[in-house]
Design a protein around this nucleic acid. Sequence first.
DNA 1: ATATACCTACCAATTAGTAGGTAAGCAAAC
DNA 2: GTTTGCTTACCTACTAATTGGTAGGTATAT
Lengths: 183, 183
Amino acid sequence: MSTREEIIHLGDQLIRDKGFNAFSFYDISKKLKIKNASVHYHFPTKSDLGLSILDDHTKKLHELIEGTATKSPMVKLNAFLSIYTKIKSEGRVCLVGSLATDLNTVDPKMAKALKVFANEILEWVTSILQEGRTKKVFAFQESARTKALMIISNMLAALQLSRLTDEKDFYVIQQTVIKDLKS
Amino acid sequence: MSTREEIIHLGDQLIRDKGFNAFSFYDISKKLKIKNASVHYHFPTKSDLGLSILDDHTKKLHELIEGTATKSPMVKLNAFLSIYTKIKSEGRVCLVGSLATDLNTVDPKMAKALKVFANEILEWVTSILQEGRTKKVFAFQESARTKALMIISNMLAALQLSRLTDEKDFYVIQQTVIKDLKS
DNA sequence: ATATACCTACCAATTAGTAGGTAAGCAAAC
DNA sequence: GTTTGCTTACCTACTAATTGGTAGGTATAT
């Protein structure tokens, strides 16, 4: 992994660990054993880094969407839910949840990229649910978009809430989401 | 309102607006037209302020629980949901959601108080659902605690997610929660 | 010869927090 | 009834650390 990629990777972890306003370029430089100025060489401003992290997530989302395009709705849904399982196993929260609370403190370009990212997730999950209902794998009353909103908000908050109530509550919520869709 | 109360009120708004790590004692002193040192007179450290804000929320939660104790489950549920409606009207997120993402950056006493607060909400909503099911006002398959987790996570994330997708999505999620419980 | 990827050495602003002073109010002791 | 002591709620003035960011230099590879 190049230094640039390592900075993105580390920045991403820090954002989802502590929030955008609780990490500094020094945190990154310390960990990578390079100087603060070297981090600025790769990313002139903190916003540039934030944008690159968002770009990276967007790219990986596209890869996942394309990689599962021919699979069944259930496999696609599991691919979506696995994103959160992995985040939970690292003790972190998701990028959307972390940055949504920081929204009023980030620059407009970052806010825009975040909104695009969140909407792409919503569209993807909506299409999975739509397809699943057509194929009679999933059952739900609401519009596919509304159901997608419910599921995404359950998973997003499951990461945050289970930090406070019980770590197991993440899996309780996740399993309930799956069970509910199948009935 | 005393200065002390004004500081708590303002600190609370700032946390739910921008996050715990994105506001300073100077922000508060500026707004209240007193000096930074005067804020420190009331709250020696930022953690002291954070704790007082959590105490304030806990106290208000207790008042709401007691104030609705003799009411019907539907009235209680509406009281719970109204908390979020009010927060949404202010364009903010909830305290639990905001601080959950900052959890790894706050001191242990604050983290403890936050966990206590989150669990008290969970217990309250659980008891509302339990009572509602017994009285056949609500219908759901899961355990009352699990259903409470689902509803709380929907509402918590509705505030965050609707900042990114569409402001109206908050109400879409909220209405879906209500409709789902009644069916 | 130029771009890459680092470095040293800064800087200005912001941050949380402290030291020590003041002015007003209030209550008991002389 | 006024002096004394204590508390409250501010103030001025400061500090040490951290922060995001810059200027300009160096070594290496192409």
